[in-house]
Computed example of a mutant assay.
Amino acid sequence: MAVAQNIRRICAAHKMLDRANPLQFTVSIGLSVWARGDTIGTLLKRGDSALYAAKTVRRNRVAFTFSNMTTEIVS
């Protein structure tokens, strides 16, 4: 989770120049951890659910969906 937070912060702080106008971009990240009995499909479904939650609450967020499908917005 710390890596995801660092990526989000670095991206938000980075300014790109498009001619004379600075552009800023943000990153939303959805996380999940492999749990006993998971398939690739269930793991990706939880990660996708977390990403959707991060974008729904507000952009530039990190969210984590647990194996019981509860989601926590961590930033």
Rank of each mutant, 00 (worst) to 15 (best):
M1T: 10
M1Y: 10
V3Y: 09
V3P: 04
V3C: 10
V3F: 10
Q5V: 09
Q5E: 13
N6F: 07
N6T: 15
I7P: 00
I7N: 06
I7S: 00
R8G: 05
R9I: 06
R9A: 11
R9K: 11
C11F: 09
C11N: 05
C11D: 02
A12S: 13
H14K: 14
H14E: 14
H14V: 09
M16W: 10
L17W: 14
R19E: 14
A20T: 14
N21F: 09
L23W: 09
V27E: 00
V27I: 15
I29F: 04
S32R: 02
W34L: 09
A35K: 01
R36F: 07
G37R: 01
G37W: 05
D38Q: 06
D38T: 01
T39N: 03
T39M: 01
T39V: 04
I40T: 15
I40D: 14
L43D: 06
L43V: 08
L44T: 15
K45Q: 15
K45C: 06
G47I: 04
D48A: 05
S49D: 15
A50N: 03
A50R: 01
L51F: 08
A53H: 07
A54K: 04
K55G: 08
K55Q: 10
T56E: 15
T56F: 08
T56S: 13
V57Q: 13
R58P: 00
N60Q: 09
N60W: 01
N60P: 01
R61W: 02
A63G: 02
N68Q: 03
N68G: 03
T70I: 05
T70L: 04
T71E: 00
E72Q: 14
I73E: 04
I73D: 03
I73A: 05
V74W: 04
V74A: 05
S75G: 13
S75V: 10
S75N: 12
